[in-house]
Nucleic acid binder design. Sequence first.
RNA 1: GGCCGCGUGGUGGAAUGGUAGACACAGCAGACUUAAAAUCUGCUUCGCUUUUUGCGAGUGCCGGUUCGAGUCCGGCCGCGGCCA
Length: 874
Amino acid sequence: MASPDTTDTARYNAKTAEPKWQETWDRQGCFRTREESEAPGKDKYYVLEMFPYPSGRIHMGHVRNYTMGDVIARFKRARGFNVLHPMGWDAFGMPAENAAMENKVHPADWTYKNIAAMRGQLQAMGLAIDWEREFATCDPSYYRHEQAMFLDMVEAGLITRKKSYVNWDPVDMTVLANEQVIDGKGWRSGAPVERRELTQWFFKITDKADDLLKGLEGLERWPDKVRIMQTNWIGRSEGARVFFPVEGLSKDYSLEVFTTRPDTLFGASFCALSPGHPLTRELAEKDAKLAAFVRECEQLGTSEEAIETAEKKGYDTGLRARHPFIEGHSVPVFIANFVLMDYGTGAIFGCPAHDQRDMDFARKYALPVLPVVAPKKLQGAELETFLSELGEANEAFDGDGVAVNSDFLNGLEVTEAKRAAIEKLEALKLGEGTVNYRLRDWGISRQRYWGCPIPIIHCPSCGSVPVPRADLPVELPRDVSFEKPGNPLDHHATWKHVACPKCGGKAERETDTFDTFVDSSWYFARFCSPKAETPTDIAAANYWLPVDQYIGGVEHAVLHLLYARFFTRAMKETGHVGLDEPFTGLFTQGMVTHETYKGPDGRWVAPDELFWKDGKPFLDEAARTPVKVGAIEKMSKSKRNTIDPTAIIDQYGADTARWFMLSDSPPERDVQWTEEGVEGAWRFTQRFWRIVTGDPASLAEPGAPMPALDEVAEALHRTAHQILAALTAHIEALQFNKAVARIYELANAISAFKPQDEAAGKWVKREAVDMLVQMAAPMMPHLAEESWQALGHETILAETPWPIADESLLVEDSVTLPVQVNGKRRDEVTVPRDADKAAVEQAALGLEKVRNALDGKTPKKVIVVPGRIVNVVV
RNA sequence: GGCCGCGUGGUGGAAUGGUAGACACAGCAGACUUAAAAUCUGCUUCGCUUUUUGCGAGUGCCGGUUCGAGUCCGGCCGCGGCCA
């Protein structure tokens, strides 16, 4: 085939056209944001794609994400909205420090260099972005406001400092996220990870758990999937706190446990404490064996999964806990590795018959298994059998049923029994009904350099003292070394030693920095007034927020989106914004995938290293070494199945890449990158250009008055307006693949158009071609501008209003209805649109094929759905 | 194991309960060309029928609701995601 970068003048040359139009848009300030006062009578529209981490190069996922956002931005602008469409950089984080350690480059230099490279790549995509609002979260001019808000939030009681377990890498001397722990070892050092207790800063997100849960109900333009994931993550569960007085201690002590199943209290056969429980600590001080057991537990990771899959282990303290309901009965107290200090009260009671974990534990330590719930339908002998089998079983029964062996609860169904048990506990003052959440407070301390410093000074006499506002920002020191393991801020010679702002005595800075999720929890608000002297300009924030359409990967369904929702509430409480929910519309796009290839040595082979012969890939041109085609997977460096967007843009142009990313696959689903697909997209850009410019003499002058239309001209006229209406609805609904199909349909209709009357033909073809170009503009903006100009228009398409479909052309005068006999299609009948049912029925029954199908029988019933279908029932 | 989503041609995918397969990719045939590429035209769910006309089957499987089911309901099978 011809090379895409040919200079043939009959071809559309993306290589020259694209930079030209990018420069024109830039020079004319087409995408500069208009403040409220500059846009009277316009509604605002804020479209935002999740901002990228500056890794160094954009990838196809970015291309897909930013193309979708750009289509919306351009479309909404053409539809008369005042649009905010900004871009920035999620610029703090570990990869910069890794690069510093590996390549001896300063994290700041590495980051800003990457930003410059990626900005250039994004600009080559021709995005309708207001670059004047760009910022990076590692700019002190950004993070100073984050520090100020942190202090506001400390004052507002939204933040707490407490101890918590972390994954500790003893070699790198750093805290690891759960996903950095692989098989219990640090991902970089390979050293066994320890659970360690550190004092850290926390946002009190659990205080807002109910509010965050309720808020989800109002987010109607969010995918249900994401709302369900957040609901599960918050994990609200109703249950009870129960007190078990402990015997065998020198003091009076009641163990507080949380349970979602107070109805199974009569089946309790032990209590278990978390290794981190205060009572455990106390006991461990006098019990070396217990202390050793606790240490062993701390070798385990902190993730629920790690704890869940580990072998259940316990340590019998010898203490007994008195049963709240059964006089004179007590159960043993264990320390158990599967009890989480962070969930509930850090202590449970075990009812082995009705909880699998408790069952496993009971069998291991030979504890009794007493069934206290049975399926309702079981009676007499069947019930006896069920209960005795469960008593011997290794499988717990956690289904619904009625209480048995449970004194005053007997016969009550689970829900009823829970309520009755709670009432009794409250009457006995041995417990109460309570709500527990799976959600934990958001720990934001990171023992790392490349993050926003926490603006606190620790003074031996005054405690944790906020850095005075006048001293903000607390800037990261530039002169740091990554030679030593651990946090460079912690062993910096001078930075951390300061005078206490309160007493003036010797004090030390907090050397932890913020979790980068903090940075991304408010950037959308900063975009409203990126240069303001305060974190937000409240008027600008009130105007632009909420984000009307937010677009990003589903991998952020829980953490980022939940934190941002919390942070917005916290900003509202501290007076920085005026709303609770930052994103009214959310769209989660699918991944970009590609085939994978494996060479004979089992190593992954990149697509551009292949030689194709007879549709099969080889490692060499002579086709001697075959390559195995593997699964279609998300593009990733490790599988070597990535395609570099810049290479594609160089070869085919940005419009081709954009068009391909929008074609075929529904945007929420994964899209497979294929060579054929991108070739097809490129060929269409050329065909588009030929349709528009191939025969200028066949088009009327722009703005020419409409002549009388003959039948064929009228048909194209209608088609164009119908397609316009459909495409407009598709883009509104973010159904880009369908919008693409409509463009093809119109292109096909124009190609197939055979005018009869010359004047009418010229006029409707001009209209159809103009519309085609305008409709394609959000998706292929450069090609559309070039076409628009070639069509003789004086305006810039980026500033031209969206065309309006003529409603009267959307309905046809006559309709063709399928005619079924007994639900089977036999023929079709064309009738006037407003024909009454009797007339349609008569026309349908008169059809020869229908009569044949009836075979002389009399119709029992004829169903006529106007404008839809006729069904003759025999 | 729980929750959620998805199963439609060779492929990606269309289809307010109303003509299943729009649109595209790939493939095949033809036109143009010395030839190829590009481009243009046509065909392309499967089976039966000599081609047409036509007939039959068909949206993972089984059943149900309905005049009518890819779509709604119940049960199964398979795949994917999240949580465990």
